[in-house]
């Protein structure tokens, strides 16, 4: 993966020949009108906190998509030494649009950024989002993405852990139906020793929807004592749903602890039977197990209000799905 992707434009979309776009065909998702359209002048939100920002502070940002538009919003967040902030980023919109977004995050020494993304773009929308994250020593960056919208979404994160004692945690839940396609592509780059990184994603895939998870942990030679963990679990709610997972480890240091795992499949029969044998109807048992599957990853959302909000949305999604 190149350190920074070339900016996209209508004439030069990535193709599946590029390794990191193997499972996601952007050109097919975008109508020619959208891909050739000149980007509209888009908003840029710039958040800058110098030291000592209090942890309880929340910035709530809404990115709207507009019918027929090619938008290029940019979110830049800079936290200086010791600052702490929670950013909630919401995506909505109406009609067909291409939201091609760049997110630049700089977490200073000992600073903490909690980033929550609630993606509910319109059913015809395409969102491509390139997040470039650099974290300095003792910094914390955690990001949770709830992804329930868009015809196609791609969240690509390149996190660079520059100093020692960093914790970087990237988590999310995908709730997909119809012919939705959601791609999460991560490059976690450990450049310094004694850092911890986690990736934990869960996907619910109904109908013909398709999920992609590509996560790579790259441990540089200097990054001894790295603790890197990656897990993607996908639950197929329909036989025509599909999940592509490609977890990767690239390790050049010799004293590290890295692991990855991935599961894809329908609900296990055994717990289902156990619940039914205790009186739950097949539907109730299924609902309880799927809720449990989702709730486990929602525990990763550090902000309680946001967690409850996402839980509510997931619940709603589920009840309309399972009737």
């Amino acid at each position: 993966m190149s350190a920074f992707p070339v900016p996209l434009d209508g004439q030069d979309l990535p193709t599946s020949k590029q390794e990191e776009w193997k499972y996601t065909n952007l050109a097919r998702a975008l109508s020619p009108e959208l891909s050739n359209k000149r980007p509209m002048v888009s908003e840029e939100v710039f958040i800058h906190r110098s030291c000592g920002g209090n942890g309880g502070q929340v910035e709530d940002i809404l990115w709207e998509g507009f019918e027929g538009q090619h938008q290029q919003p940019r979110l830049a967040i800079i936290l200086e030494e010791g600052a702490e902030l929670t950013v909630i980023e919401r995506h909505r919109g109406a009609g067909a649009y291409w939201k091609n977004m760049v997110t630049d995050v700089t977490v200073g020494p000992n600073a903490k950024l909690h980033h929550i993304r609630i993606v509910e773009d319109s059913a015809e929308a395409v969102q491509t989002n390139m997040a470039r994250v650099t974290i300095a020593r003792d910094g914390v960056y955690d990001c949770f993405s709830m992804n329930a919208g868009g015809a196609m979404t791609r969240h690509q994160i390149h996190a660079v852990l520059r100093g020692p004692n960093i914790t970087c945690s990237l988590n999310g839940v995908n709730l997909l139906k119809g012919s939705q396609h959601a791609d999460t592509t991560i490059l976690m780059e450990h450049q310094a020793p004694h850092c911890v990184s986690n990736q934990f994603y869960r996907s619910l895939l109904d109908d013909q929807s398709r999920g992609v998870f590509q996560g790579k942990v790259h441990v540089h030679r200097e990054a001894q004592k790295t603790d890197g963990y990656q897990l993607s679990n996908a639950l197929l709610l329909s036989p025509s749903a599909e999940m592509d997972t490609k977890p990767e480890l690239e390790i050049y240091a010799d004293d590290v602890k890295c692991s990855h795992g991935a599961t894809t499949g329908p609900l296990d029969e055994e717990p289902l039977f156990c619940l039914r044998s205790r009186g739950l109807s097949a539907d109730a048992a299924r609902l309880l197990l799927i809720q449990a599957f989702v709730n486990e990853v929602l525990e990763k959302i550090p902000n309680k209000d946001a967690r409850e909000e996402v839980r509510g949305k997931a619940e709603e999604w589920l009840t309309t799905r399972l009737k």
Binding site: E270, P271, C274, L275, R276, S277, R278, G279, L280, S281, A282, A284, A285, L288, L289, Q291, A292, F293, N295, E296
Partner: peptide, 30 residues
């Protein structure tokens, strides 16, 4: 589930783990 309601109970030889469902929710729902 109808057998359970009719009064049948099976204590499993190998009880299964149900991650994410806590005991009290499980028992109450059941």
């Amino acid at each position: 589930e109808e057998r359970a309601a009719a009064g049948l109970f099976l204590a499993f030889q190998y009880p299964v783990e149900i991650p994410g469902v806590n005991m009290s929710t499980f028992l109450k729902t059941s």
